[in-house]
Design a binder for these strands. Structure first.
Lengths: 135, 135
DNA sequence: GTCCGTGCAAAAGCTTTGCAGCCTT
DNA sequence: AAGGCTGCAAAGCTTTTGCACGGAC
């Protein structure tokens, strides 16, 4: 949350490199613990603190984004093209939706407020196909 | 998060009634602690647990909504007309924006996915007028 | 050699919950 | 009288942090 004024110099770290690789390779939007479990297979002595610290660094570098999914814990994703999220009310799964993007709404809103808009996020809530077929 | 199958019978509670009243009377999007402090003035022996329990009940009744503001703590609002949020990146303030609503995007997205969309939320991020004038 | 990154463990912060007694119905 | 609601305190969970050591540069 805190923003550094000076640009930090980061060293290379195998843990962080792999963390980013895993995040990029997965379709899901993992929690810190999930990433920890996954990474622990490669680094048996890994600690959760390292995962959080590296996630914070990757976020600061703009490579990763934190998602507020409405749960008690955060989810993360590697940042790619702008996209929205479909969040299932039943199972909590998050699905990316990249086919349509509405950049114009930033201007629509900017023009009718004295708020300086830089970005927006849209989350759609409903029921995913899996959960629908189960009921 | 857990959803009850059976419909619960709620009794009246002065604390809950006042909690909702305060939430409806405020323009801000308070945290649980803010509501606690406010309500404690009326109920000196109030406990934070009661605030959380009543917020959960009000949410289940559909009268209150929890907002994921990207902070470490939750914010709440009494549910009214559909609206979006302008969230200030500098001070964290949340401003309601009710002038424009885009119900049609639910259909746009529904039509190009097999996701059953019930609702959406849009949050705009940027800088509020106060913070802009300060810099 | 410097000092960032890591592991370990403790701490922090917000939220939830068990329990006994009170209040609503 | 039954059972939700409350206060109190303890517990729970996710996330953060202090410290000493190892690794990157």
């Amino acid at each position: 949350m805190k923003q550094e004024q000076t640009v930090k110099q980061y060293r290379q770290s195998r843990q962080r490199a792999r963390l980013l690789a895993i995040l990029r390779a997965t379709e899901s939007h993992p929690t810190a613990t999930w990433l920890y479990d996954r990474l622990k297979a490669e680094f048996p002595s890994l600690s959760l603190g390292t995962v959080y610290r590296n996630l914070a660094i990757l976020i600061e570098q703009g490579l990763v984004r934190k998602i507020d999914s409405g749960s008690t814990f955060d989810r993360f994703e590697a940042k790619t093209a702008p996209h929205y999220h479909l969040i299932c009310n039943k199972c909590g799964k998050i699905i990316d939706f990249e086919e349509r993007f509405f950049p114009e709404i930033n201007y629509i809103i900017s023009n009718s407020t004295n708020f300086d808009i830089e970005s927006h996020r849209i989350d759609f809530f409903g029921t995913c196909a899996d959960c629908r077929s189960k009921s």
